[in-house]
Amino acid sequence: MDITPTLIAYLHLCHRKIWLHAKHLRMESSSDLVAEGRLIGEITYPQRAGKWQEIDLGIGKIDFFDAKTNTVHEVKKSNKKEQSHIAQVKYYLYLLEKIGVENPRAVIEYPKLRIVENVEWDSETDSIEVEQWLSTATNILQGTCPPKMSKSKCKKCSYFDFCWSGEED
């Protein structure tokens, strides 16, 4: 099974979420939060579609890539920075390096926070870290469905209703 950038992000959020998504139990299409994220990316930076290109890596797409500087631009709707965002972008950088892109870089933009975060990439150490994530993800996906996290951590997850329907508060 191919490990996608989305699965790497989910690995850093919830092991149950990565497992469910990989098994094609997808809740994002009905999630208002996911739809809001797409809309923010489209309306916040409308000029990008003409300026930068989308790159299809086979297992995931980079929405905005500046080929002149080898920079991935990732937009997140979140009102807080998360490790999952950095992990997803580092996986993009790993994949780009694997196909021969030299010195790939990335920035994560948080329009709600008005913050742009540069993601550092060290080919030696970060490649090892990404390969560990891939190994961990593979182990999770080969097992049975992981348990739920605590309900308080799940409130904004697109899988919340799936995991918690029928549960008392």
Rank of each mutant, 00 (worst) to 15 (best):
D2G: 03
T4K: 02
Y10W: 07
L13P: 03
C14L: 00
I18T: 02
L25W: 06
M27G: 00
E28R: 11
S31G: 03
D32Y: 12
L33F: 15
L33M: 15
A35I: 01
G41W: 05
I43M: 13
I43L: 13
Y45C: 12
K51Y: 11
E54W: 01
I59W: 03
G60T: 01
D63V: 06
F64N: 11
F64T: 03
F65G: 05
T69M: 02
N70F: 00
N70A: 06
V72G: 05
V72D: 07
V75W: 05
N79R: 06
N79Q: 05
S84V: 03
I86N: 07
Q88H: 10
Y92I: 10
L96I: 06
K98V: 00
G100P: 10
I108A: 01
I108Q: 12
I108G: 09
K112Y: 11
R114S: 13
R114E: 15
I115T: 06
V116R: 07
V119D: 13
D122R: 04
E124R: 08
I128H: 12
E131R: 04
T138H: 08
G143T: 01
C145L: 08
M149N: 12
S152M: 05
K153R: 11
K153I: 02
K153S: 14
C154W: 12
K155C: 00
S158E: 15
W164Y: 15
W164L: 01
S165F: 13
G166L: 05
